Amino acid sequence: MTTIPPVPVRCIHRPLSGGLVVPWIAFTHDGHVAFGGVDQHKRHLALTRCLCQICGQRLGERIYLLVRPQDVSTRWASEPGVHPECLGYAKQHCPMLNGQASHYRRSPLLATHPAGRPCPDPDCPCPDTTTPKDHNARSGQPAEDWDAWLINPANYRLKADPQHDLLGLDLDINVLKIRPIRRSRHAGLDEKLDLIRQLLDLPPSSDEV
């Protein structure tokens, strides 16, 4: 008998796939959910309207940003924010966040139907919407480390490129706390994270979400 994991109250209105909550920004096509694929229109709405990428509801007084080491370098994060309880659920069940997936999937979502077949519709929008811009660069690469940065609404800021195209969320902000979410086996990462905390004048980390 399959046990369906309990979901946060905020997510009880969301559909399930395989017993798991379908994130609000997940791309769906022809009745299939492309976990790992992103509906870029919904991503844009989540960023600009301050919505949680998991439940789709407006973010509150405590906002978590999902941040990778490369995001720290560029000073912006592509992922929309999440509620604390939605982050806790994703941390348990998302393979990229809980460590079950060691690498990004090798076959790109760009030109494939979410069910694994070539998309039969040449006019389908999925080539433009299912794949983050850096997916091809990450295809088959080792999974990255993730941290959750706790911020308040006053530090929720959008980041655009010189052409005014939306990139994501600005990380050149005041951060209340950094929580490690996923750690790969790379030497020196904890030391680097500690250095980041020192530079941002943050308290020591905690695994609680």
Rank of each mutant, 00 (worst) to 15 (best):
A148H: 00
E191L: 06
K192N: 13
P125L: 05
T112R: 03
V9E: 15
P142C: 07
T28Q: 15
Y89L: 02
V175I: 15
D147A: 06
R185C: 13
G168R: 12
Q57P: 00
H29Q: 05
D39V: 03
V9D: 11
I4Q: 11
R185T: 15
R14W: 05
W76L: 04
A34V: 04
G56T: 00
D170G: 04
R68I: 10
P6G: 03
L109D: 02
G37Q: 03
R68V: 12
G140A: 02
N155Q: 15
P23A: 04
P114S: 02
G188I: 08
H186C: 09
A160Y: 13
Q100G: 07
P69T: 11
L167Y: 03
L166N: 07
G31Q: 02
S206T: 13
R58P: 08
V38A: 08
G88P: 10
A160R: 10
K42E: 05
C94W: 04
R183Y: 09
P153G: 02
A90R: 15
L202V: 08
P127D: 05
G140H: 03
T112H: 12
D194T: 11
H83I: 08
Q53E: 06
P6F: 04
P132L: 00
T2R: 07
D170Y: 08
A148F: 06
P162V: 12
P125T: 01
S206E: 13
S184C: 13
A90F: 00
R14I: 02
C55V: 00
D194Q: 15
D161Q: 12
P153C: 12
R197I: 03
H135R: 01
E61L: 13
S17T: 08
Q100K: 07
G36M: 09
L176A: 10
A77Q: 11
I196Q: 10
P203A: 03
Q57C: 04
V67A: 02
L189A: 07
E191R: 15
R58M: 05
T131Y: 08
I63V: 11
D121S: 00
H83S: 05
R182L: 10
C52E: 05
S184Q: 15
G99W: 05
P15L: 00
Y89A: 02
T129Y: 14
D201S: 14
I151D: 04
H13P: 00
P23Q: 07
V38K: 12
R43C: 02
P80L: 04
H32R: 09
A154P: 07
L176C: 13
V209D: 10
R157I: 12
V175H: 08
I54H: 11
V9R: 07
P118N: 00
Y104P: 01
C11L: 00
